[in-house]
Design a protein around this nucleic acid. Structure first.
Lengths: 156, 156
DNA sequence: CATAACCTTGACGTTGGCGTCAGACCAAAC
DNA sequence: GTTTGGTCTGACGCCAACGTCAAGGTTATG
């Protein structure tokens, strides 16, 4: 943990890779959206590639779903459970506990899925609405063209 | 404008119909998202059914696209242009002006359409991701079931 | 006409999601 | 070892999108 392992990134690099500021990264950590990264001897944060992915994921959720960081925290927490499940998958102990965690992760994921699915549908509705409107505009444009043509034709 | 026309609604009713607070309605008016409604003699606001639709629309945009009210204002402004076009469609005067407005409305709508389309696609990506994850969970659950079954079987 | 229920305009408060310093410390290069 | 550049922890600032009084005017109801 003291020796900066290869592949680890400092906060500035992560900021550049993810497109957020350093302040934002510390803020996410503060709010529990990012697990506290390891540190160098001097105290500098050392992020993993996984952390980078997580930040990108958080931003996608923010941008796409437009939900609060608190809600996003719930989601990424569930994914943290997933990570843990994957990690200690071999140790046979506490199967009941694993089952519980798996159930929780499943529930959260299903909830997310429901939200996303509903939003997707509404978005597609809006998409077709806009498409229809564009067609309407096109018809109007044609009408305007004709209005401009006729007087010009009758004039000569 | 002084006589409360039938079908007009006071702010409280609009609030209930749309699910927003009165404060929010005044706030939207302040920010130019709602055109200032007519008033009763005493100064009470009188909204039309169209205003109600507009509020609902604004909320849909907020909820679905997760964009700022400033951006939403641009969108609904464009739709106001549309309304005007529809209203004064007969008067032949100023065809060039109408063409200009139509062009603007078309541009804005196309921009909206692009945004919505992109978001829709990304949402569908996320949808399939979540679906795959759920399937993974299901497989794990089955594995856990087997882990529980085997020791029970070898024990007897 | 009194009284309850609704509405008005300020004006200040709040929350989320960071931005922006300040002052100090750490790391890397010369 | 000193300079240069990245990073640290507070702490205050800021904007959007409202919430929440306060003090008063308006409208409907008995």
């Amino acid at each position: 943990m003291a020796t900066p392992k290869q592949g680890d990134l400092q906060i500035g690099e992560v900021a550049e890779l993810t497109g957020v500021t350093q302040r934002t990264l510390r803020f996410y950590e503060e709010k529990g959206l990012l697990r506290p990264p390891s540190r160098m001897d001097g105290g500098f944060r050392l992020y993993s590639e996984e952390d980078v992915q997580r930040v990108k994921h958080i931003r996608r959720l923010q941008d796409l779903l437009g939900i609060s960081l608190a809600d996003i925290k719930e989601m990424v927490d569930a994914e943290e459970v997933l990570r843990q499940l994957r990690a200690q998958y071999n140790p046979e102990a506490a199967i009941a506990e694993k089952r519980r965690q798996l159930q929780k992760a499943t529930d959260v994921t299903k909830a997310q899925f429901a939200i996303v699915k509903q939003k997707t549908m509404q978005m597609r509705e809006m998409e077709t609405q806009l498409e229809e409107r564009l067609q309407l505009f096109e018809r109007w444009r044609v009408e305007l063209d004709q209005l401009e043509q006729k007087p010009a034709a009758t004039r000569r």
